[in-house]
Design a protein around this nucleic acid. Structure first.
Length: 306
DNA sequence: CGTCCAGGTCTAC
DNA sequence: GGTAGACCTGGACGC
């Protein structure tokens, strides 16, 4: 099944496909992929009715994304489901016009107004939480190794697509057992965190999807952060990171990668976290996103200060 | 071969 | 509420 999706935000703002799928590195982790030299996004999805597919999202006609889903999928209901999934993955229901309004007056971030800054979500928030844990206190190569092991060992195959697997369900991650995390996935001390989180989700003790679907008016960022910090292995860095992946952009992701990046790109000596927070204060609920765009502005080579 | 540390967090003061 | 020390792992270093 193939269909096109208009690339517009909820506020009518532009969405730059390329900048969106390169918003952060997490999206290239297994089982997702950014093939074709980074021009498309491939992602296995579990669908309703026990079906699964691998979708590929690529640039379509100007202003559109082209979505292709593997397998014998037919009918309006499936297309509606896929549309909803892709809208969530690309966060098309988010309104970034306020972010762009502030950025337009910021010479160092004016480039984002062309449609940058939208965070790509994984198939489920659970997947993004697990992957975030796998980024803590280790190198990126270790993150890749651990997520590869989780998918290869516990992910269900996608029928009809050779080699494709879904990200493991919470249930599968509970079932794996302590020894598997230690000896096979080699997740180190993170294994206990991953199992505990998977158990909470599987038992329904925490409903990540409900957290994501609750609007900020009902669940402000402060309260959301508090809930996330209750998860074992989730501290200030991980909470901010997960919140970004939920479209909650108030918290800057401060870690050993972004702090030096900020120092280098701003051409100033390393500054305190408080100074960073001050710099992006004008962005309000988008302060964390502004910081993220700032420290990743050299990821794509054509982001001159236009 | 030993030490250090990477996209931190937890626990114990 | 703020701050040392421990913590799995494995790649990068210095010796």
């Amino acid at each position: 099944m193939t269909f096109d999706l208009p690339l517009r935000g909820a506020g009518g703002e532009p969405v730059d496909f390329h900048r969106t799928i390169h918003s952060h590195g997490l999206i290239a982790l297994s089982p997702n992929d950014v093939p074709d030299e980074g021009d498309s996004l491939r992602m296995p999805l579990r669908l309703s009715g026990g079906r699964s597919t691998v979708i590929e999202i690529r640039p379509g006609a100007p202003g559109f994304a082209r979505v292709t889903a593997s397998g014998a999928l037919r009918g309006a209901a499936v297309q509606a489901e896929l549309t909803a999934r892709v809208r969530r993955i690309m966060h098309l229901d988010g309104d970034y016009s306020e972010f762009y309004r502030v950025a337009a007056g910021d010479p160092e971030l004016r480039w984002v107004t062309r449609g940058a800054g939208r965070f790509v979500h994984s198939a489920t928030l659970f997947e993004d939480v697990v992957k975030t844990i796998c980024t803590t206190n280790c190198t990126w190569s270790a993150t890749i190794r651990m997520t590869d092991a989780l998918v290869a060992g516990l992910g269900e195959p996608v029928r009809g697509v050779r080699g494709a697997r879904l990200f493991p369900t919470p249930q599968a991650m509970v079932k794996a057992g302590e020894a598997w995390y230690r000896d096979v996935a080699r997740t180190g001390y993170r294994g206990a965190y991953l199992r505990a989180i998977a158990t909470s989700v599987a038992r329904g003790e925490i409903d990540l999807d409900a957290l994501e679907d609750t609007p900020p008016e009902q669940l402000p960022d402060e309260a959301l952060e508090k809930r996330l910090l209750e998860l074992p292995g989730v501290g200030p860095y991980a909470a901010a990171h997960i919140m970004m992946l939920m479209g909650r952009y108030s918290r800057p992701v401060l870690d050993s990668s972004t702090r030096p990046r900020y120092a280098r790109l701003s051409g100033r000596k390393p500054r305190s976290d408080a100074a960073i927070v001050r710099r992006f204060k004008p962005y309000g609920r988008f302060a964390g996103l502004a910081f993220w765009c700032y420290v990743t502005s050299d990821w794509l080579d054509d982001n001159g200060l236009s």
